[in-house]
Design a protein around this nucleic acid. Structure first.
Lengths: 210, 210, 210, 210
DNA sequence: GATGAATGAGTGTTCATTCAT
DNA sequence: AATGAATGAACACTCATTCAT
């Protein structure tokens, strides 16, 4: 009779067992999403993959979308965390670019499959769209700041708009991660990092520190 | 996806009226796919949008997947055709790069929404995956050839692997098309072409013809 | 992914066959509602009782609630229609009261089971609540008008408020219909009509036309 | 409704704390039933409203139906109790009728929401149907006896069958309680009592004690 | 060939009840 | 006794495909 949510919303698990189950569902959901795409992402299959019964899914997640949001949040958090690790201490700007490209590529490796899927499934979901934007902004912002510093130090082409450049070069890295890890083009990761870095350095007119 | 067949296989339309109906379904299908994504892509809605009755859909297409393949083939054909048009007659390499980037961006503008969707929905469909690869290969190949010619003429950095470079720079353009046209970031198209061209030219170490 | 209505809403049947199927579903739904209450009122059971397959239900009704609304509309329409039939031409006011009570009782006989059920299931449905109010108002209004005419003719107690009296006496008839036809108290219908009429006549102080 | 049992049968609470918990569940169940109807009447919500954990529900009640039966028993008991509270101290029969009508209305005020719901949900439950009948019989019997005494005293119309009359007039009161308290028609309670009493008195041909 | 109806397996969600701690 | 987790059958609804006319 169209009740619309009569049952209380799931709450965070209280016991250790509950936490384990919830984590298993989250992991299974992400795994399925990455390996089988939307086709494998049904509460039934997620529950089965997590080794729990059907109904248990709804003990921890309000809906399929709720799980999806949790997965995306997890992926985004991982990207934020990774981006904090080892903010290149190298002195040589080119070495820093290589490290940064390698780092970006790795971050996208784990995230791009999920984020690509979501980009299309998230037609209406505001929470998701916002998360997606935040993730992109994180990288664009960092890239733009890095370039600005190089420009100020006189080590990069002054003509480039930092933000636009960061967007364009970020697009390159993101799409390459997709090509390598999702489309599985047989490209060597080191080779790709090497080329991307050379192209990137040349593109911004990187100069050796005098 | 991939049921067994009991229906009479649709044959190519014989009459002009038949061709018109088939074309209307194709166009409606593509339109819906581009505007509403998978959600709007059902035989019933496609038929309605094409102004024919539900059952008629199966007179012209064996299945929903069959229509999808036809749409992708159409999109791919358009890209091939466009890529043949006026292979820049300009003499100045930089002007050619700008023209080429603008051309690529436009080609992707019409294609990227559909191709992105298909990339993920086409889990198992070999026909589709092959088409997708062909499209990408078209651009990679052309890009690599262009670079090789510049290198041979001594106008570009000889250290770069032409194919890898074409892949990386192609990734940049493809993703930018997605960012602009699907994610609708408010970026000026000319501005993007300008920056991409500058970065591209610098990246490959483009030199003025002596 | 929470699409929310992607498929077109069911339209009125075009062919005779379609009309038959829709009618069968309506009839089966009402029958089940009357005999088994909410428990029997599931799309699956309705479809089975109508002799069609599950999916066919949704060819004609947008939802379970949609069918319910249609049923209630049918019931209400029948009550309106019946109330128009043969507005007793008898001259004697008491005879008219008897006829009217018998008519009301019969009208409620067919309606009360459904209307009672709906009264509680219709928590949120505005369409339904409005229909229910209209049905009640129909009878209250007619009763009040009848009394007012008698009062003006000096044939009934002038002290009574016509509307309040109609509400109270209408309540009596409605509830008696429920007692007899739904609770199946073994009471003779004629006997009930006889007593109700006597009580009613006395209650309003009905006087013989001089 | 009516599963087989594997659970230890709940026993009557021994400790004071146990009794308090059981009472809290009963009260919460009734409250939910009255305010939200069937939609709010789930073991989980009842437990939450009573401030105990989910599983505890089944420590005190064998099933949801068990709680329902207990609630109905409570409601019925209240009606029996209230009906004993010796209203008729007045000497004047009309005053007694007013008092009685007011009393009946109040009794139904608290009961009618629950009893109406149960009347329909109790499709198969014998215990419930019996309880419902007993409640009605209580009022019919009392009404019939009252009328019989008046008839014997020559103060009421001798032609009326006491039981049938009590049924009909009882129906009137019960339904009016529903109209006022559940449907929330904006009627003044005193006004209703006044009219019902006048109608009732006139209906049975009540005469002043000579 | 075109049309509208019919089909039924599949999916997301609820909830009464049982279980392990 | 009390708690929170687990279970799975039941239900509402969707949609690709087939069928009858």
């Amino acid at each position: 009779m169209g009740r619309s949510r009569t049952n209380p919303a799931p709450t965070a698990p209280v016991t250790a067992r509950g936490r384990r189950t919830r984590d298993a569902l989250l992991a299974a959901g992400r795994e399925l999403l990455e390996t089988r795409g939307w086709a494998g992402f049904t509460p039934e299959q997620v529950a089965a993959a997590a080794g729990v019964s059907y109904g248990t899914f709804y003990t921890y997640f309000e809906s399929k979308d709720d799980l999806l949001r949790s997965i995306v949040r997890t992926v985004a958090d991982q990207m934020f965390t990774e981006s904090l690790v080892a903010p290149e201490t190298a002195d040589d700007p080119y070495v820093r670019i290589v490290a940064s490209n390698r780092g970006y590529l790795r971050a996208w490796r784990n995230a791009s499959r999920v984020l690509r899927l979501v980009e299309q499934g998230a037609g209406e979901d505001d929470t998701l769209r916002k998360l997606l934007l935040e993730v992109r902004e994180l990288y664009v912002h960092r890239g733009a700041e890095g370039l600005r510093r190089l420009q100020e130090a006189g080590l990069a082409n002054q003509d480039l708009d930092p933000r636009m450049t960061a967007i364009v070069l970020g697009a390159m890295v993101e799409q390459m991660a997709h090509v390598i890890y999702s489309l599985r083009e047989p490209l060597d990761e080191d080779d790709v990092v090497d080329h991307m870095s050379k192209l990137w350095a040349a593109a911004i007119g990187l100069r050796e520190r005098p």
